[in-house]
Design a protein around this nucleic acid. Structure first.
Length: 344
DNA sequence: AACACGGGGAA
DNA sequence: TTCCCAGTGTT
């Protein structure tokens, strides 16, 4: 297909490269079934292959099918997802599993998947192409970068996204793509991850070098351009560590919305721009009848758009039946909360 | 359209 | 340090 911006390169050539150079990844081991692909795609949202690698097999062992996932309590899923970030993904995965059980089975096309919580345009297309064989090109960060370079699109993201999507869709006109849509999508991912990388792309060994307008102009490494993003702002909080003589720690479940939504955490003040004085923070302590001691030092944790500084205040009681043993807390807490434990 | 939402690996 | 990752949901 020829677009106003020029011809698309050959899907067949990319697939031939993929047949030689495909990465070996856990979710490619078995024949693609909807559950395994769904879980892998959600886990991979804004998360690197390297980070997902050790977690994917563990998740499937604990929740081997959609029935097991739907039957699980949220606390089990929260524990399994702890440390992976973007916890709304786990909440939506859980809600979607229960919706699938209620419907009596998986949606049979990408449009049906798109209606489930946590399934956006990208994930619906990826499941459609990889698990269902639909001729779709999922538009993820890799594909945006590859297409922006192929056609030398200088418009910055995110404004360029609709155009990049139309250009990506142009590949569906090629019979080679339509014969293997799942492999074609994954070939684009692998090309973006291993050759057409964000910086210093390896154009010399790229199977699409000849048709790439950015490579021809020597600007591949500069594309795609991006609009400047908002700066990080500071947040401060004080958290309360209540320990008993058996080494149990008081934890609470955070509200579903907001940072670390639905996850376990040490009780604490709200997080705000100004630092907290001890006396002021104490009004938020889980118990005000105890002798809270400020611990030395702070824990720093960077979120996408926030830089959080936390202090800890410690108190001890003889017996805390609702407390969580420290080793279990280490397993169940999100990373920001784990950083508080060394301050105890 | 802009923002909220984690965490880690690579340059 | 900064960048960016097999993005989605809310406002």
């Amino acid at each position: 297909m020829t677009s106003p911006l020029g011809a698309h390169p050959s899907a067949a050539e990319l697939l031939a490269w993929y047949d030689r150079a495909a990465r070996r990844l856990a979710w490619r081991d078995a024949a693609p079934d909807p559950y395994r692909i769904w879980v892998s795609e959600v886990m991979l949202q804004q998360t690197t292959v390297a980070a997902v690698g050790p977690r994917y097999a563990r998740f499937l062992a604990r929740f081997p099918d959609v029935a097991a996932l739907a039957a699980a309590d949220w606390s089990e899923l929260a524990e399994e997802w702890a440390g992976l970030g973007y916890y709304a993904r786990a909440r939506n995965l859980h809600a979607a599993a229960r919706a699938i059980m209620a419907m009596g089975g998986f949606p049979t096309d990408s449009t049906g998947w798109r209606a489930l919580p946590g399934i956006g345009p990208y994930t619906a297309s990826a499941i459609g192409a990889i698990a269902l064989g639909e001729p779709l090109v999922p538009l993820d960060g890799n594909v945006e970068r590859v297409v922006a370079r192929l056609f030398a699109i200088e418009t910055p993201l995110p404004a360029a996204k609709p155009l990049l999507g139309r250009l990506a869709d142009g590949f569906t006109a090629q019979p080679a793509m339509r014969a293997r849509p799942g492999d074609f999508a994954q070939a684009l991912f692998d090309l973006g991850a291993t050759i057409c990388t964000p910086r210093s792309p390896a154009c010399a060994i790229c199977p699409w070098r000849e048709g790439c307008r950015a490579a021809a102009r020597g600007i591949a490494g500069e594309l795609p351009r991006k609009s400047p993003k908002a700066a990080r702002t500071a947040l401060h909080g004080v958290h309360f560590a209540l320990l008993d003589e058996a080494g149990r720690l008081l934890l609470e479940r955070r509200p579903e919305s907001g940072l670390l939504g639905g996850m376990l955490a040490l009780p604490g003040t709200p997080w705000r721009a100004e630092p907290w004085a001890d006396a002021e923070a104490l009004a938020h302590a889980p118990r005000t009848d105890l002798d809270w001691q400020a611990r030395p030092g702070v824990a720093q944790h960077g979120f996408t758009h926030r830089d959080l500084t936390m202090r800890v205040m410690l108190a001890r009681v003889p017996e805390l039946p609702e407390g969580v043993p420290l080793d279990q807390a280490t397993r169940s807490l999100p990373s920001a909360m784990k950083k508080l434990l060394p301050l105890l």
